[in-house]
Design a binder for these strands. Structure first.
Lengths: 405, 405
DNA sequence: CCACATTTGTTTGAACTCTTAACAAAATCG
DNA sequence: CGATTTTGTTAAGAGTTCAAACAAATGTGG
């Protein structure tokens, strides 16, 4: 029941049915490969003749390839179809505070190479370094191969239309356009997105159960706390591309001071900094604390390890962080009623410890029985969710539903 | 960039372009009526020939009517087109705690008759009474007229698919299906929805600026506090149709007790009960308070009137309620970044007093400059937003974009 | 070995749609 | 009154689905 926006609609032409059906067929191949034309026709509920025509176009444009014929119990053996992936590459980039990761991946999301370097905060230098590395990676992996583009994940708000990074405090960027600079330098398509949205997109496009959930929230917990919202199968970007800033929703108006200047933000309770500060037992200004922690070598992963080996103070710090994590998640559950919540970040390494605690806490605050059952699942950092999000940026472009009406 | 759900898609047929374009044309007529075929062709960016064919179908199915020819500076005079409304009726029903309102309206939302009666909490009796009144209203207004259906707004959660009222505490209902009962009794189409969602839909479908905002939140403040979310032009219903329960998001973990059992819910700070309790200065259990207020004759409207005539305690109660209203609105602004927030409920009668206060408070807590500028507009209760929401339920059905892919 | 059934994949013509252009209708202008 | 302008209709052409027949490839059973 969507309203048609009469100032920004897309009329149907006589080739609209084909656009729609071709994209549906492509997605069916993607999710059921290998699949024969006859099988595709049954799933599309259409004659095999139409499928022949659709598949011919998909093969001609390079989206789909024919594989081999396989055995069948009776009758002519089917010729299987696959999404073309092995000679289509994606360069995924994850720019973080200290390190920048560059991954070469095929179009299915299979990693082929991974490297990292100290983040260059000067945008021009970063673009140059990224261009060199992207070109080297592509050169060393098959010359005839095609590159779908570069996916760029940055820690900050991004204007979707222009690609401008509006504000990335960790890098000190304001209104920086690395997307166009990198595209101009490499001649490749570049797509840019902030980290929580990219992580959410990775769930939509690269998770085996992606199609099961068109309604979920991805919560990222690291130095900051952010969220990517997916509603009705689409990312929620908000009016100015700033939706999902759950990190600075207050938990307690009298709570501790936050980096943003306000008091009692969720982030101030459950970010990595908050966990470390609890462990160290220090009460000082958040900015000073961050300074100190950046120089010290202590990480959340260390504290979790210590909790595991019997350090009671570490265990308490982890548990308390989980408690406050749950308080914020409960708000999300009641406000948006998502089908699931995915949690990413270093804290998930302790999920065996805090998972049941978080679930119980959320359930006790849920307003309905079904909301209380909302699955809350961790995503381990070693699966590189942000890099997979960078790949998803390009997958989305290739597989998304055509815009119509 | 929507993902195609491969387990629940709608393939395009050879008549799909027509479905899409006919619906776009219908919406263009709706928003620009009266409009000529030639004008429609220009807006659709299509030849006049196609428009002739589309309009003929719209006229044949009864969606559009021809009006009169009008003057033109040069050339043949155009024949104007209108959405057919004058002989298409909608019965809108708003079931509230004490009174039930029944309105007869034409399809454009123009009220033709309004009546009310003491709410019958026994579902069977209510259905019978509604059926009698609906039939009488339709009978007294033109025999040949067609009725598009009955729109039913109830104070509680509704399962969209089955139409079952899952839980309506004010009526004491649990798993009650008045929709099917009323449809069976009257033979009319019946659509049911909860109040905040209906109010949001009234903005989408019956507001002159409806098309401007495909991203907004409607907050209803009455005995409870709820919200209807519209994202990407669609209502957010959540996984179990329970999205929008912002009323029980905690403002302060140590705050006052709420009817829901938790502490410090937004609702406990900013509902009508909360305002009255502030004015009365009484500190007692919320249940007891509600009991007392239901028997007393004091209303929020009274308190606002007293504030206007110089009662300092009334003024303070109103202002404080506005302050807490703003705290919750700020969370919504930061979490969802809507293009606007519409506030409905008795409190809006005092908007000249609290409006600037609320806007300033929200702006001071917004994380970005653009979020700080989010318009927060009141909707006066005397415009019957819930009844217009009931009408919108049927308008949505007639004018929504066809589902495709 | 061969007729037959079965399944896959292709081809073909009909039906429905948009697209383009010409045409008819109705009004104003000089 | 003819030229011009604008509206609305009609008709032939192109792209799409749709339905059915056809060709291809394999196994089965005598």
């Amino acid at each position: 029941m969507r309203k048609i926006d009469t100032r920004n609609f897309r009329r149907a032409t006589r080739s609209t049915p084909r656009e729609i059906n071709r994209q549906i067929a492509l997605n069916l191949v993607r999710e059921h490969q290998p699949i024969s034309r006859a099988d595709l026709a049954r799933r599309l509920e259409v004659g095999r003749g139409l499928v022949t025509s659709l598949v011919n176009e998909l093969i001609a444009e390079g989206s789909v390839v024919e594989g081999v014929t396989v055995d069948a119990p009776r009758g002519r053996r089917p010729m299987m179809l696959w999404v073309r992936t092995h000679d289509r590459f994606v360069v995924a980039v994850d720019v973080r505070f200290s390190l920048t990761y560059v991954m070469l991946s095929d179009f299915a999301g299979t990693p082929l190479a991974l490297e990292s370097f100290d983040t260059l905060v000067e945008p021009g230098e970063l673009v140059e370094e990224l261009a060199l590395r992207a070109e080297r990676l592509l050169r060393t992996h098959g010359a005839a191969a095609t590159c779908e583009g570069i996916g760029l994940v940055v820690p900050g708000m991004v204007d979707r239309r222009t690609g401008v990074v509006l504000n990335a405090p960790q890098l000190g960027w304001r209104n920086v356009n690395v997307r166009d600079a990198l595209a101009a330098r490499t001649g490749l398509r570049v797509m840019i997105e902030n980290a929580p949205i990219a992580c959410a997109l990775s769930q939509v496009w690269l998770s085996p159960r992606g199609s099961e959930v068109s309604n979920f929230v991805y919560v990222t917990v690291s130095d900051g706390v952010g969220a990517g919202l997916v509603v009705n199968g689409e990312i929620v970007r908000g009016h100015d591309d700033t939706a999902g800033e759950f990190g600075h929703i207050p938990i307690d108006p009298d709570g501790p001071e936050c980096l943003c200047g306000a008091r009692g933000c969720w982030e101030a309770y459950t970010s990595n900094l908050a966990l470390l500060s609890r462990y160290l037992g220090e009460r000082q200004s958040p900015a000073a604390l961050r300074q100190q922690l950046q120089t010290s070598a202590l990480t959340v992963t260390d504290v979790i390890a210590r909790a595991r080996s019997g350090d009671a103070r570490a265990a308490a710090a982890v548990d308390e962080t989980g408690h406050y994590l749950a308080l914020g998640l409960a708000k999300i559950v009641n406000a948006l009623n998502p089908a699931r919540i995915v949690v990413g970040g270093e804290i998930t390494a302790a999920w065996d410890r805090i998972g049941p605690l978080v679930r119980a806490e959320v359930a006790s605050r849920a307003l309905t029985e079904s909301a209380a059952r909302t699955p809350i699942v961790p995503e381990q950092p070693d699966t590189y969710p942000r890099l997979r999000g960078a790949i998803a940026l390009l997958a989305a472009r290739a597989f998304a539903a055509p815009r119509v009406a």
